[in-house]
């Protein structure tokens, strides 16, 4: 029987990546509700609520480490008192964009640029979003470039950043290639693979 999995995410791109990850397990999961509030503040503020709710139904939370020191520390800080068994809490090092950059072959093809521009270890990049935008700026495909690169310095991302990257995540992103270059992605993948749903004691229909 498929496990219903509710998503909690920081931004649209995380949602696409989570969807693609979960879909790679075929029938094991189906996606329930999506909880999204913009930025990590939303997740941090509401994490207790999701943790409590995970007693009744599984939740998959993905957040970015950003400038934090280490994922374990962040998890311990946020998740007090303790993680409930049906809560999958994963942290992308440092941002979910690094998971995109980790598929060097796929993403360089998508942008139409040489793979040699890509970092060997995307988890070591301080600001993966900025790097992703820089790389997109080199793209020979005009519409891709214009969608992803901000129109001027007063915007943080391009006008159709999410829409364009969604196209890549759903059609071009290869999880196997990407997880070979990202430990945090590989861990998230394994977590989803090994996850077993523990039904609440009073079973609901």
């Amino acid at each position: 029987m498929s496990i219903p999995l509710n998503f909690v995410h920081e931004d649209d791109l995380s949602e696409f990546v989570m969807t693609q990850l979960v879909n790679s397990f075929g029938d094991k999961y189906y996606i329930g509700n999506l909880y999204y509030g913009g930025g990590f503040g939303y997740i941090k503020k509401n994490i207790n609520g999701f943790n409590e709710a995970a007693i009744a139904t599984p939740f998959f939370i993905l957040t970015d480490l950003d400038n934090g020191e280490c994922p374990v520390k962040l998890m311990n800080e946020w998740l007090k008192p303790e993680r409930k068994p049906n809560l999958i809490f994963r942290i992308a090092v440092r941002e979910v964009e690094a998971w995109i950059l980790a598929d060097v072959e796929g993403f360089s093809h998508f942008l139409g640029i040489s793979p040699s521009y890509f970092p060997a270890n995307p988890e070591m990049v301080d600001d993966p979003k900025r790097l992703l935008i820089q790389l997109a700026g080199k793209s020979r495909k005009r519409d891709v470039r214009e969608d992803i690169v901000p129109i001027n310095s007063n915007a943080k991302i391009g006008p159709n950043y999410n829409g364009r990257l969604m196209e890549f995540v759903f059609d071009g992103w290869d999880i196997n290639r990407a997880k070979s270059r990202s430990v945090s992605l590989s861990r998230a993948f394994n977590n989803l693979q090994n996850f077993k749903y523990i039904a609440p004691t009073s079973p609901k229909k």
């Binding site: 609520g49 999701f50 409590e52 709710a53 009744a56 999410n162």
Partner: peptide, 30 residues
């Protein structure tokens, strides 16, 4: 049940409920 649990965990009614009313695949709208 999960809405009740979320409120017990300190969430507001809107944070716990409104995501359920969001259309699936809203990102594909554009």
């Amino acid at each position: 049940p999960e809405i009740k649990a979320m409120l017990d965990g300190g969430m507001t009614p809107s944070a716990a409920i409104l995501p359920r009313t969001k259309p699936k695949n809203i990102n594909q709208l554009t």
